[in-house]
Design a protein around this nucleic acid. Structure first.
Lengths: 209, 209
DNA sequence: TGTACATCAGTGAACGCGCGTTCACTGATGTAC
DNA sequence: TGTACATCAGTGAACGCGCGTTCACTGATGTAC
């Protein structure tokens, strides 16, 4: 509280920012998830990957949980970009299928990042004791990616290719199906997955004709 | 190789077995999963829960991974029992829905055990460097539980309540949908889940009339 | 323009902790005679 | 039936390791005058 005896409060610039920033820490953690499971992502491992010492991290984040929260935000944005990429030519149903396929590809190519977003670890335990405000904020996270799916289904409805009468509810079902497929294909790769499962799942849940 | 100089090889009984057995260790690990996430299940935590010292575990299991493998086997058997419980009266479609609901209830009531079975951690990283034989054996694990689902769908087909022409493929799709719902409901509890999603998902994927 | 100084991102040493794992052991259990 | 002995499940002490976290520090960066 002790106010400075000087006349005006000064606003100092952040200095090292631009060089060794919190962004680099988040990027390092994201990179680690390309080759290590979430459980191996420790504060020291992140520091090592970022090329800094462990205590430096505290200038930017309170805990590993806070870093992972930032990774989640960035990764959801990445996923949204992937989903929004203009799909190849084709009708609305083909564009929807292409978008769904990209979702599955993202999950396959970045399995640990995908698990971080949707695997449930962070919700149950990794980020305990959060405030109501954080919960509300988190409810928003990922919604933008989901809206891409809703938009594609709306196009199908407009073009008369889907029987859906509630694009939100049916997109939710579609998301559930896609997630189930992404998750189980990785967990149970030895299960004799029917070859047309992806296609049939999308058709059923999006109520494509 | 050095053969004993005695005449015949003697077969000794296991002694402590019946008291402090490998089964108790597996039960302790299972119990821990009722209140702790998988990442906190350490060899020492299991020993503590079982009321023995840490080194004692090595008489029964090589590693925590081996214990978790045993937990997985036991838990799959539990799940199968739950699914097989005679469903309440009703037609084939109602019985199928009741079985699906039990699946979802199991996931909800034992989230960490469910995650161990289907969450993908054990496949990717928790149990590394396994032999081909183990992989093949693991492909069998859980199949019995899945067959319950196939059986219920077959009943629907027999009673003319499902349009499915391939009960295996459609059961796989149904499983995918159930897993997706179980998983996402837990990961994203703040998402505005449509109330009829479970019912609609089952109807779509099982091709119920 | 030059100099003295305040700021503060990042360092390096140190800590206590819980972990997996090893080892020689103990003492109850069952066997041989 | 009684005794001496082999077996072996479980113990308790000890180890080295990586972890999160603390602390006083250093030295480059930008500011005041």
């Amino acid at each position: 509280m002790a106010a400075p005896t000087n006349h005006a409060p000064r606003t100092r610039n952040a200095r090292g920012d631009g060089g060794r920033l919190g962004d680099e820490i988040v990027a390092a953690a994201t990179r680690l998830l390309e080759r290590l499971p979430e459980g191996s992502i420790t504060l020291r491992a992140i520091a090592r990957e970022a090329g800094i010492t462990a205590p430096s991290i505290y200038r930017h984040f309170d805990s590993v949980g806070a870093i992972l929260r930032a990774v989640i935000e960035v990764t959801f944005a990445d996923l949204e970009v992937v989903l929004r990429e203009p799909p190849p030519h084709g009708n609305a149903a083909e564009r929807l299928e292409a978008t769904c396929h990209r979702y599955l590809l993202f999950a396959q190519e970045h399995p640990e990042q995908y698990r971080l977003l949707f695997g449930g670890a962070w919700n149950a335990s990794a980020l305990p004791s959060e405030e109501a405000a954080e919960r509300a904020e988190r409810a928003e996270i990922g919604q933008d990616a989901f809206r891409v799916l809703v938009g594609r289904l709306d196009e199908c409805i407009t073009e008369g290719m889907s029987l859906s009468e509630n694009s939100f509810a049916d997109s939710a079902a579609l998301w559930v199906g896609l997630h189930g497929l992404a998750s189980l294909r990785r967990t149970a790769p030895l299960f004799p997955w029917p070859s047309e499962l992806e296609h049939e799942l999308i058709r059923s849940l999006a109520r494509l004709e």
